[in-house]
């Protein structure tokens, strides 16, 4: 029963973060909201593991926590530098920075 309460609280938090992601004026607000949703999803998976009794899906929560971090850092690099990776023709990339 308490797992259901914790799960609904986490779902409400994800809803609030989703609203901030839609409203967020700057792109960094959106990245912040997505990062928060990712962390809450990790907790949701953990609570759901106990809710359904199948605790072997905690590994999924573990992987999700890592990938969420890597995704946030990758998006930040994309937003800041304008490109994520240059496809080899770096001289063309340097020619027109933006």
């Amino acid at each position: 029963m308490m797992y259901a309460a914790a799960a609904t609280a986490i779902l409400v938090t994800i809803g609030l973060a989703l609203a901030r992601a839609l409203l967020g004026p700057t792109v960094y607000d959106r990245i912040l909201a997505v990062n928060m949703i990712g962390t809450k999803t990790v907790l949701l998976i953990a609570v759901f593991a106990f809710l359904s009794g199948r605790t072997d899906i905690l590994d999924i929560a573990l992987v999700y926590a890592l990938i969420n971090f890597i995704a946030v850092v990758a998006v930040l690099k994309l937003v800041e530098l304008g490109y994520l990776f240059t496809s080899g023709d770096t001289e063309e990339q340097e020619a027109k920075p933006e």
């Binding site: 308490m2 914790a6 609280a9 938090t13 907790l43």
Partner: peptide
């Protein structure tokens, strides 16, 4: 659990 949920909200 309830305190964690409330903090999240």
């Amino acid at each position: 659990l309830v305190a964690g949920g409330l903090l999240g909200i």
